[in-house]
Design a protein around this nucleic acid. Structure first.
Lengths: 217, 217
DNA sequence: TCAGTATATGAACAATCGTTCATATACACA
DNA sequence: TGTGTATATGAACGATTGTTCATATACTGA
């Protein structure tokens, strides 16, 4: 997984390049891409703007690099890589861990910035829409569908449309995460929204669970 | 409800001013506010840019005017003005009409553009966040809470936290509406998402409804 | 018809934009 | 230590930005 040429020393890694990306991400998330100038980015890292062009051929390439990182970012991978088949057996606690992942993203600096960047540029940048739709929405909803389907077969939850269930579980999490982002911008309290993550899982599980007998945990 | 001063002739209404707003809204929705130039707006209505300054003192004022219109726009008023106390008696059909309102906004030109403008600028514009939060989110969730509370008292639905219910009902609608907007940008089919509006109401009502003949205690 | 007001024009402005490039400096390796 | 490569600098560029303003045109009411 070398990001550059094979010849370049592996110990290097171009520290400045990463600093540019980190700084640019922070600014893009706050001011938006087109309102952020190259001088803004350079100024924020105490460097002249011409220096950036040793690492990126232009401003667009900075955005594109950040966007590329989205595909492997934590904000699109809600499930641990386990890929285990029996994942659904965890039942409610699996749903809770997914909800927690959603929640934590809103409180982790870099990931929070990525979400803000995504939300601001998704209406203008087709590539971002692609990544969002394919890696974030479709992929996760599909996985959720599979999990709910398996839960139905194992008679853990009531029988219904797994895809609908996946959407119904997913969309409030997305919404609550956005609410948290917005509240934090105005330094308002997020506690009431934060509690909704857990309440959502509680409520959701209560509505889908099938008690054949009392065999919980 | 005079929009201007009391002295100005009521028959007037300044046709160009409205055309500017309409044109600007369309461009802001597609390119974003800061990427849209005054020349873009003027050019789109076949006029020189200096002409705009007879109607607005600067570019910001155009945005501010559009933002002000948000408060009275259809996208924030999900409920008919009826303010009737027995609204909750409509039961499921009330929820369905709210969902339909959400759905239709995504297919009505001006409202769709307003939604896109709102979503793009909400992270940068505190005023928009205020309006969104107060008029759109808080107001509607509060009304929904009241409706669900009344439904509980009338034993139409199961007893639970009305505010949580309101959020659980509201957030998927918001999410699905955004999905439709995104799909339309790439001219993709929206039918599968569109069907989720109705499915959401069906599913949601099924989980909350209380069948009278059921024995409690 | 004419005066007065409202709107549109064309040209220009200062500021800022992204980008280039010759040059200076720092750094790695022999 | 010296040499070559990578990175940073300063200055400048052409283009574009929002905005102003004197002037021209269109429109209204008497």
């Amino acid at each position: 997984m070398h990001e550059q040429s094979v010849i370049s020393p592996p110990s290097k890694g171009s520290k400045t390049k990463e600093k540019i990306l980190k700084t640019a991400l922070g600014l893009f998330a706050v001011k938006g891409y087109s309102a952020t100038t190259v001088r803004d980015i350079a100024g924020a890292m105490d460097v002249k703007q011409s220096a950036l062009y040793n690492h990126f051929k232009n401003k667009d390439e900075i955005l594109e690099t950040l966007v590329s990182e989205l595909t492997t970012s934590a904000i699109v991978t809600l499930f641990a890589d386990k890929e285990s088949v029996g994942l659904h057996r965890q039942g409610k606690s699996l749903l809770m861990s997914i909800a927690t992942t959603f929640k934590l993203i809103g409180f982790d600096g870099p990931n929070e910035a990525l979400v803000k960047l995504l939300m601001q540029e998704i209406f203008r940048n087709e590539r971002i829409r692609e990544i969002y739709n394919e890696y974030f929405y479709q992929e996760n909803v599909k996985k959720l569908s599979g999990i709910f389907f398996a839960m139905m077969q194992d008679e853990m939850i009531k029988s219904s449309d797994p895809l609908l269930l996946a959407n119904e579980f997913f969309s409030p999490l997305f919404f609550y995460q956005m609410q948290v982002s917005l509240l934090k911008l105005d330094k308002k309290s997020t506690s009431s929204v934060v509690s909704l993550f857990e309440k959502h899982v509680d409520y959701f599980w209560d509505t889908i669970k099938l008690e054949k007998q009392q065999t919980l945990f």
